[in-house]
Amino acid sequence: MVHSLAHAPTPAWHRIHAVRHKRAWLIMTGVVVIAAILIALGFFGMVTWGVLGSAIFHTTYRLVLAYFIALALGVTIALLVGWSPLGDYFFPVFDVLQNLPSFALIPLFIYFLGYTNQMIIFFAVSSIVWPILFAVLTAIKSAHNDLNDAATIFGARGWKRIPFYLTPLSYPAILTGSIVGIAIGWESVIGAEIITDIAGFGAFIKGADVTGISQGAIAGMIAILVIVFVVNRLVWAPLLAESAKRYAE
């Protein structure tokens, strides 16, 4: 009997990942050190840290909320459409909808929800949902025929197909769709805040620009950079690595 580990990650694979991981942390440490030096030199003396902190908090929590709503919505719709025999009819509809420029629709969101927190959140949902939905739908539609047949033959039929087959099958796609969706989400939330002047990082940098305190905008950008990096390294990178290892052919 053969006991070899045919497809397990090799030592070279581990080395490459370790080097990438170390390099990313080095770059981020450099950014933080430079920021600390600039703070020590008084470059950010004009920045009102409390206001900046509150602005970043508002933007981040809107994004997180929008992400979870979009995740639930995108995955649910994609699973139902992927599961349904009529699913192919929905593809062209989604294709047209996702091509609509989201910022062109912002007046519609303002009309229905006003200049509110909810407006920004649902506007962000409308942008985040598409990469998640399409990633999951594509994963379901491009699944190997044999795997689909195995699921059917061994009993994952009817509603059971969704939790026991389609959902775990879509896991890597949920991750990649989420990463792209969140990147788009940052843009949507900050853009909507700039347009509507609702308190948040967008409104903060717009205000900083108007009042000429560009250090505020720079400090804010560094802070967002650090948040994005930390989330990427501590949440997405380990999940992606685990998914790549497990779902390897």
Binding site: D146, L147, A248
Partner: peptide, 14 residues
């Protein structure tokens, strides 16, 4: 009925 596949068709998440 059961089937054994040429490409194994095992569920990678299990």
């Amino acid at each position: 009925p059961a089937m054994v596949f040429q490409n194994y068709a095992l569920f990678p998440w299990l």
